[in-house]
Design a protein around this nucleic acid. Structure first.
Length: 272
DNA sequence: TCAGTGTAGGTGATTACCTCA
DNA sequence: GTTGAGGTAATCACCTACACT
């Protein structure tokens, strides 16, 4: 993605928004254009462990799930001479492959398998993630057992889910800031125009009739957004909104918020 | 219309590093 | 100060969907 910069020079406020990332192709990334290259360059080429195939493409109930004779293609013992893609092609019935708790290391040892969770597994993981974005070891083992996965797989799934959720939120935040900046720019232009008009009026000869009332522009977009998104400081628990205050401290009276401590949702900091 | 191909995006897995008890 | 567990960040590698020829 191209970098986008937003400047608000007119208002004496400058803010650069870099909306980067996601632009690197697989090929580019494989050539080491990633941001962590400096720290991780030493791990190229990949360690033997990275090349270890750790999982298989078998369904726990594939005999019944596929309902056809094509299920044998998932077998671990099938000759993997041509690598993973051949195995995918051989999934004639289109059933999504899944790793299972029974998964074992592949005999082949040349490439690691790309596995897909079933819809049911993904749905349950999503449900659990909505409840809690982290799992304690007990929950992890229980969920793994329920899904017929290894605890490590559940752990990895949650790690990736957290990372990608955060990434999406960052993108949303960037978009929000971008719109804020656009709104500020427009507001600044409007104020500049207004100032010019006032200056012109000051030096204009007095005319008959009362001066026109000041134009009441609607609240600028950024103000509306800020009002909608700013919450009160969670660290000092001085939450202004009734719902937020009740959530933070149900025992606290709703009116017991003497000072407003605005919380910046982007920096996760408060001015208190 | 169909097959082959290139590409972008999604996602499971790995690795290095950081934080904290 | 050391250690182990669990977290994040970055990345790899595979797979799929889709556009294009």
């Amino acid at each position: 993605m191209a970098q986008e910069d937003v400047h608000l020079d007119d208002a004496g406020l400058a803010l650069d928004l870099s909306l980067g990332g996601g632009g690197a192709s697989d090929a580019a990334r494989r050539q080491g254009t990633g941001g962590r290259l400096g720290r991780d360059a030493a791990r190229l080429p990949p360690s033997p462990r990275a090349l270890e195939p750790s999982l298989t493409l078998s369904m726990p109930d594939e005999a019944t799930a596929t309902g056809s004779g094509g299920g044998a293609a998932h077998s671990v013992s099938s000759p993997p001479a041509a690598g993973v893609k051949r195995e995918r092609v051989e999934e004639a019935d289109g059933e999504r492959a899944s790793s299972t708790a029974r998964a074992e290391d592949d005999d082949d040892g040349s490439t690691r398998k790309k596995l897909r969770l079933t819809k049911e597994q993904s749905a349950l993981l999503e449900d659990r993630f909505k409840e809690h974005s982290t799992l304690n070891p007990k929950q992890k083992v229980a969920l793994a057992k329920q899904l017929n996965l290894r605890p490590r797989q559940v752990e990895v799934w949650f790690q990736n889910r957290r990372a990608r959720t955060k990434l999406k939120q960052t993108e949303v935040d960037c978009e929000f800031l971008k719109r804020c900046c656009e709104s500020l720019t427009e507001e600044n232009r409007r104020l500049q125009r207004e100032l010019q008009e006032l200056r012109a009026l000051k030096f204009a000869p007095p005319g008959p009739g009362p001066p026109p009332p000041p134009a009441t522009a609607p609240a600028p977009f950024y103000m509306q957004l800020l009002a909608a998104t700013l919450t009160l400081c969670p660290s000092c628990e001085r939450l202004g909104g009734p719902a937020a205050a009740a959530k933070a401290d149900p025992g606290r009276p709703k009116a017991a918020a003497p000072a407003h401590h605005f919380f910046n949702p982007f920096t996760h900091s408060a001015a208190c």
